[in-house]
Amino acid sequence: MEILGVMLAVLGAALAAGLAGSGSAIGVGIAGEAGAGIMTEDPGKFGLVLLLQALPGTQGIYGLLTAFFAILKVGLLGGEAIEVSVWQGLGVFFACLPIAIAGYYSGIAQGKTSAACIQLIAKRPEETGKAVILPAMVETYAVLALLMSIILLNSIKL
């Protein structure tokens, strides 16, 4: 039943890309709402707002990345077909979970921080530097999760 192994890996990839992407989408959405509010009054802030709005977007990229690695691993992206046992597939599935979970929640949390920081630059444009660092603090945990996912994927021998 090697097909089940492959499918488990695909499920992992789907979760990584889907959940982390959702987190980013919600996060970017929250930040965007705040940004739209600021820009209604002060369209000149577009550049800064865009920068801060983009920050929660990285989780989606990390998720995509992990998903890509996962399906590459089981040979779905060209190359020769690889034998994947159910256990190996399950391993790939688990390896995808860190970024899927952490990506979802950190994306949302980062979006909220970004929104608050967008309000901060509306009030104090001179503090932009600090406003950019605060959301990056949240992202740390997405980065760590990504790292773990990659290391786990890497350590599964096929």
């Binding site: 919600i26 929250i30 709402e33 705040a34 940004g35 739209a36 509010g37 600021i38 209604t40 009054e41 002060d42 949302i108 909220k112 929104a115 967008i118 309000q119 509306a122 009030k123």
Partner: peptide
Amino acid sequence: IPKNGYTYAVSRLKAMAN
């Protein structure tokens, strides 16, 4: 998720408060 939907309004008002 801040579900109350006040993000736009509060941000807008904060900018107006300037």
